[in-house]
Amino acid sequence: MTEASLIGLFVATVSFGALLYLAALGELLAEKAGVLNLGVEGMMAVGAVTAFIAGVELKNPWAALLVAMLSSAILASVHGFFTVGLGAEQVVSGLSLTILGLGLAAYLGKDYVGLPPGAELVPVEWAGLSDLPWVGPIFFSQAPIVYLALLMGITVSFVLSSTRLGLALRAAGESASSTDSAGHSVLGLRLSAVAAGGALAGASGAYLTLSITPQWAEGLTAGRGWIAVALVIFGAWRPGRVGIGALIFGGTLALKTRLQTFGVDFSPIILSMLPYVLTLVILLVISIQARKRPSPAPFGLGLAYRREER
């Protein structure tokens, strides 16, 4: 194992970590507001394909990113309409969204398979910092979306903990009737959280086709949306912990493709299971703690709200 390949591993860890973090932050927003959205995988796929298409057609990576975020936000709003607006079962709607999103992405992208990218988000060079040994390549030569993920993490964390909007959003996820009687619109809060979550999943998908693997192929998301869903539980619904989890899970993704080149005789399939095994362990810990204190999961997660229902 050379120094270069080790640095390469860490570069990929941060990069995959950011990819997962964006999607997980989106899911965290929705879940904090009380809406479970299992459609992350589908929203990522739609984000990835629309970013690629917009890149080819518009030749501008930033416009492509915006298109991806918008598309996924619209797709997420379908989930919002059914679950928040009509009170439909969230698990069913979310799973449908994943299947719908994956199908839609395959359909939209069928003429773009194998095409060269029209636009790419190239790594940012930070004057002076990028040339530092180790930290330079790992932290200061990443694609702009990595810094966007970090910025979003800080923003989401601040909004949730220290603003009126965040308080109301968390309240909507804990107890819709309390939020309603406090004069906040549960419908509005939940719909916007779901849409914002979709936009972040879209950005995550765009990162794939604009930077990590700048091309389109069906099945490109490869289950990473599901890892993002698990990540929210792993991070106990806290943006900071989810960030740490993203790096750990990102590390497993980065390691998976490099195991052989490192000459380690370890099945990459077991490594793929690691995020889910870790999540189960965390669930166990949460469940044991729940005997003494309330669970960190939003209490109203998954529950529809209708005002005049007793």
């Binding site: 009126r164 109301a168 309240a171 107890s175 009737s177 309390s178 906040h184 209490f299």
Partner: peptide, 18 residues
């Protein structure tokens, strides 16, 4: 109509916070 995981203050100001 209170939220168990919130602090007393958070519960109080929920309806009208800065």
């Amino acid at each position: 109509r209170l939220i168990p995981s919130f602090s007393v203050a958070e519960n109080v100001v929920l309806g009208s916070a800065a």
